[in-house]
């Protein structure tokens, strides 16, 4: 005969208090809010950390995080939660349009364009961009745009700089011809060619609290990121992005995002559908 243990609270679930603590921690570190419908992601993200922590439940794990004197555990928690699902050429249509806009802008403006990929995570977006531009204009073209890619997570940036992807990551969204052209297989991992890696400059940056990178950008990609911020803060961040957007520069948002009703300084671009630019009354002032 077997004796069943008395039922106890599910140690893999986070209590409301535990969640509130984690949410506050993430917001304090990054400014991002955890929407109620993303709670399951927090639990999923914390489980691997829980296993390595010696804590017996997620709530106990949270108490370890709060008690931790150094920031290492907190960083790990924030990284795990922000680890967004990302893929190469996410929303492929957008990339074709971005490359076309970049080509036209380069012709008009002359010189070297500047592109900023905000919230680049493990680098799929800026590398996709670099591949497209390399195909359009040649990787050795002196006018090849400067691509700056930033993220709040140091761990994600380390991976992005290494440009090394698992089999799952590499084939998600990546056409096979581009994969064999731009990546090399080492063991089970796929690593980008050094020429491609050199085209992207990665830097740690917290959009919510750090000053924007210096200078103006001809193209800013900030996709599926501002969605995570409270409306008030989102307005301010849109203003910040507008502030570093060059005259005639373009802002690219995620497929389901808009500036309409969210930002005074930005309006839909008339030339490039789905993209945004600085409002006319603002554009003359720089």
């Amino acid at each position: 005969m077997t004796v069943r243990p008395a039922s106890r609270p599910d140690e893999r679930r986070l209590s409301d208090q535990g969640l509130a603590i984690i949410a506050a921690l993430v917001e304090a570190r990054t400014g991002q809010e955890i929407a109620p419908n993303r709670v399951w992601r927090v639990e999923t993200a914390l489980k691997p950390l829980l296993r390595g922590s010696g804590a017996s439940s997620l709530d106990e794990f949270v108490s370890h995080v709060v008690a931790a004197a150094d920031g290492v555990l907190i960083d790990a928690v924030v990284d795990a939660i922000l680890n967004n699902e990302t893929s190469f050429f996410r929303d492929a249509g957008v990339f074709d349009q971005v490359a076309e806009a970049a080509r036209i802008r380069a012709q008009e403006a002359g010189g070297r364009m500047r592109i900023w990929s905000v919230g680049c995570s493990t680098g799929q977006e800026p590398y996709s961009l670099a591949i497209l531009l390399a195909e359009k204009m040649g990787i050795d073209d002196p006018a090849f745009p400067e691509i700056l890619a930033t993220d709040v997570s140091a761990q994600a940036l380390n991976r992005a700089r290494a440009a090394t992807f698992s089999q799952f990551e590499i084939q998600r969204g990546m056409p096979v011809r581009r994969m064999v052209e731009w990546f090399e297989k080492r063991g089970e991992q796929w690593t980008a060619h050094p020429d491609l890696i050199r085209k992207v400059q990665f830097r740690r940056h917290n959009l919510a609290s750090d000053p924007c990178p210096a200078g103006k950008f001809d193209l800013i990609l900030c996709r599926n990121l501002l969605f995570y911020f409270a409306p008030e803060r989102r307005h301010r961040l849109f203003d910040r992005l507008a502030g570093v957007l060059a005259n005639e520069g373009l802002l690219v948002l995620g497929a389901g995002e808009t500036v309409i009703g969210q930002a005074r300084g930005l309006v839909p671009s008339e030339r490039f559908r789905g993209f945004y630019c600085r409002a006319a009354e603002d554009a003359g002032r720089t």
Binding site: S87, F89, A92, F168, R172, G173, P175
Partner: peptide
């Protein structure tokens, strides 16, 4: 996701 993205490609 992989299969879906490849079919799109």
């Amino acid at each position: 996701e992989t299969l879906e993205s490849k079919l799109q490609i």
